[in-house]
Write a protein that binds this DNA or RNA. Structure first.
Lengths: 354, 354
DNA sequence: CTGTTAGCGCATTCAC
DNA sequence: GTGAATGCGCTAACAG
């Protein structure tokens, strides 16, 4: 039987209230008494039963997610997954709320963070914009006692408690490696379609891609990055122009959003072009099936949301997280290992995690 | 505030004990009374707080895992992950035990299942052997009220509550698709190294591989399956013979264990052979880095163990599982997206195994 | 058949 | 500074 507060109270010769005070680091205990209790905790190997503690406290965890507005399908999928997780709130004692702010707008993000913190939530999950003022706002949140995780896009300089997302350099390297192998000996340049080089994860993906493709394979020209602003129309136009300019174009790596435009552009081409894209959506899924896209690298929004919730609760309670469980995987989808589309899928399918 | 038992007791005009009786489907309640209570539960939207219930019951979940003996590194990794999960037992109220039985020995497995069931555990996780008597034993367990999940290798005919593992047909298809693309136009036959065709997951992988490779690519000869019994020595020998017999061998798909032997054999070859294998171990990892293996398909044993525990607890409590969370992924590793080696990783003794 | 009561392990008033 | 008492939501004797 696990030791309880009663056991350590008896063992230390004090009352439950005193034990509770030292457990929760509250004042009103003499140093000697405290040490006696801590000794008892140590020798009995006491670990507090969080379930019972939460029951007694009627604890709920108000958690705030701050994500970009706009029609980026991945972000909307993320929002949908937050809503799904919200269905379980009564069970896991959370209360989830979502704040949306214009994408890439650090001022708006800072304001949202400060506003969220003023309600002293149990935790904050932020899709970070890579800017110093954002880092400062996150630091403020933390020093106000609010645990913060960055979501999808990291900002290590902020001192956030945890990053929930994939290793984007590794993702880029994987894309580069797949591209190199898929192309085999076939000549011709490779194009890269990004959203914006102002975004950290896009920069990292490009970096990894370039490194892997130039390191492990025969020399190949990587054309200047096409910045499609994650906008399907613009992406389509840029890709079409690029195809015209390079009649021997061998491959395209799309590392951001706006893939519906990309697909339209390449399906108009009569020649085979190897294409690797990010995020499984209804568009990339059907393009994959049709053979227009060869591989899709993916991060599971559902897993990310659940992971953020678990981590924030753990941080709020000051307990350790299961690292292995919180590692977000880079999923690689070919037409042959597509997960089934599920009834609950909003528009961005899948969901599986740990 | 969520409604509690008090609320429904008041609303139904009965006592707590009666509410508890209908909640737990215990006898001693008149049909009319029961219906009143159920109506109250329905209208108030009551959901029982499992944490509080478990606290009151001092509930623990004795869970039994039955896995093969032998030096199959994946199985040993699985066992290690069970031990890791056991560290958290005090926290999540489980008590894990492991029974090992000789691999592919259905009689031994049946006996182990029956023995485990006689202790009436809260749940049973079994690496199933594909045999009718095993299915019968699992069915017995379930009708004795013990929830059963199959682990890694399924046995749908048994009526198990859930399967914890990857979709092996999809895994095979993925391997076939990758093999086809990696080979490009290069001619030459492809070999398949399996453990045994008596095992269901191996059969399924082969089936998927053959289908994908012959369906989506130019015709290619797939040689007769080499059955290496998951034994490194035998695998090495078989592969060496195969290489000698087929000087134009283009690729090898290793869908079982015994990969250290495979690696030894192919590293002795002077010519490039595309290799796709299963399960990331120290051997496959270093072969991947060295370029001897091109891709590794992987299932995360840690995830599988945690998933089995979550599912069995849920089944024991009669509550729903988060399906998305319990789907086990097929991880695809290239040298570029290898996860960092961790303390808990599978480590095999040098020389004699996979 | 149904209700009362006393905990499960912990947190929190309120006295002393 | 410290302790006794009460309750969180639920279960389990034990009465009636």
């Amino acid at each position: 039987m696990r030791p309880t507060v009663h056991d350590i109270a008896a063992s230390a010769g004090v009352s439950l209230a005193t034990v509770d005070r030292v457990l929760n680091r509250r004042p009103g205990v003499r140093a000697v008494t405290r040490e006696k209790v801590e000794a008892a905790i140590e020798t009995l190997g006491y670990v507090r039963d969080m379930a019972a503690a939460n029951l007694a406290k009627s604890r709920v965890y108000p958690l705030v997610f701050i994500i970009p507005t706009g029609d980026n399908p991945f972000m909307r999928g993320l929002e949908a997954e937050i809503a799904v997780a919200g269905l379980r709130s009564p069970v896991d004692r959370t209360r989830l709320s979502v704040l949306t702010v214009p994408a890439f707008d650090s001022a708006a993000l800072v304001e949202a963070i400060d506003r969220a913190v003023s309600d002293v939530p149990a935790g904050l999950a932020v899709v970070a914009v890579d800017a110093p003022e954002v880092a400062a706002a996150i630091a403020r949140a933390r020093s106000a006692g609010v645990p913060v995780v960055t979501l999808v896009s990291d900002l290590a300089a902020s001192g956030r408690d945890h990053f929930v997302g994939i290793d984007n350099i590794a993702a880029g390297r994987t894309a580069g490696s797949l591209m190199g192998r898929f192309l085999g000996g076939r000549p011709g340049p490779v194009a890269v379609l990004a959203g914006s080089m102002l975004v950290r994860d896009h920069r990292e993906r490009l970096q990894g891609f370039t490194a892997a493709l130039s390191q492990d394979f025969e020399p190949r020209v990587i054309l200047d990055v096409l910045e499609g602003q994650d906008d399907p129309m613009l992406a389509e136009e840029l890709v079409a122009i690029c195809c015209k300019a390079h009649s021997d174009l061998a491959g395209i790596y799309s590392l951001g959003a706006g893939n519906s435009g990309l697909v339209t552009a390449i399906s108009a081409q009569g020649r085979p072009i190897r294409v690797i894209a990010h995020e499984l959506t209804s568009h990339t899924r059907s393009a994959l099936k049709a053979g227009l896209i060869d591989a899709v690298l993916h991060q599971d929004a559902g897993h990310e949301v659940r992971s953020a919730i678990r981590v924030l609760k753990a941080k709020a309670d000051g307990v350790a997280v299961i690292e292995a469980q919180e590692r977000i995987r880079i999923d690689i989808f070919l037409k042959d290992n597509l997960p089934l589309e599920q009834a609950g899928d909003v528009r961005e399918p899948i969901g599986r995690d740990d």
